[in-house]
Design a protein around this nucleic acid. Structure first.
Lengths: 186, 186
DNA sequence: AGGTCGTGATACAGTGTTGTATCATTCTTG
DNA sequence: CAAGAATGATACAACACTGTATCACGACCT
């Protein structure tokens, strides 16, 4: 965000911008600043007052999403809990942030800063996977990258299922756990 | 593609355009026609000779990808084979088309024609899932949409694993089967 | 109530992309 | 080899988006 802004942004204005931007950019990364302003219910000039340019806006949203993810993950990170419980908590906590999460997945391809922060997050997941292996919940025959890719996809699928209203949040989390650990067989 | 073109496109030119466009648009849907032409090793004017406009190009690629997917799926569609074998064949045949497949996944959000063709494809997968359920390979407790979503993701993940060179094509297909049916547990 | 400050609206120039037209060049085909 | 056709290169106008500046309005605070 523009650092030396003469104007101070109103909280309501900022939240409207972030929400509209995440929503629109998830569907179409090429959404114009006009569209974003309109959907946020603000003037385009206000956008430019607080964000130097388009890239500044996107980067701000990126770091904002990462912060929210970090907060969610931190709430789960109790080393004494069994790995499987931490996994379940992660699905429960992170899946509701699905739209923010997906924004990061899309943006990491374009922004180096987002990519690095995202990879740091993956490091946390790597450690979780290692614990899951150590406790025999996941086979050592399966490459770690495959496991993290599955978890990554399951978070997004679980959010979509809830967003499309064919599963409750609790059901989606359980189904994600089952898919990862036991598959979909009878 | 422009129907009443005075010029006839050379096969090599067309293939170069399609390949470059799929590759670039997968990374960045906003890639300019200039970029695409350069990466295809052709002049930008040639692009405009054969495609009325950007949308025409994208739609052509969309239908092209769908045709390739149809051909791959058709080769698998032997009603006498057990459902589980058809599933395995699908991973083997479709995963190598991962980049084309991903283009469709991205584009179905923007183009109504692509969306419809894509949904038709999903209908084929729905039928496969139904067979898998009938033969007890997949539990009826799991919603069909969840299963199709998993298959969708697994195709893409398998292709990525091969593209990133940490699994062979055969390993990726087997791991996709295992993940879907038995999970990653020991 | 009045002053301050964030906001909306508008105008403007700069820029990159798009689509068309034209001509020279290269490739294909008979 | 020669004719025809596809392509490359270039110039051009139209267009949308971006970023800046300016002024009037309205919300918030004391």
């Amino acid at each position: 965000m523009k650092t030396s802004g003469k104007h101070v942004i109103r909280p309501a204005t900022l939240e409207a911008i972030v929400d509209a931007a995440v929503r629109l950019l998830n569907v179409n990364i090429g959404a114009s600043l006009s569209e974003i302003a309109i959907h946020a219910g603000i003037g385009r000039a206000t956008l430019h007052r607080h964000f130097r340019d388009r890239n500044d806006l996107i980067r701000f949203i990126g770091t904002r999403c990462i912060e929210e993810m970090n907060a969610a993950v931190l709430a789960v990170d109790a080393p004494d809990k069994p790995a499987i419980e931490r996994l379940r908590s992660m699905f429960v906590e992170v899946a509701p942030l699905g739209d923010r999460y997906n924004f990061l997945r899309l943006e990491r391809r374009r922004d180096e800063g987002v990519r690095q922060a995202y990879n740091t997050q993956l490091g946390w997941v790597d450690a979780l996977v290692e614990d899951l292996r150590a406790q025999g919940e996941i086979s050592r025959e399966v490459p770690v990258r495959w496991v993290t890719a599955q978890i990554d996809q399951l978070v997004w699928t679980a959010w979509q299922a809830v967003a499309e209203d064919y599963l409750s949040a609790a059901e989606a989390s359980e189904l994600a756990m089952r898919t990862l650990l036991n598959g979909l067989k009878d």
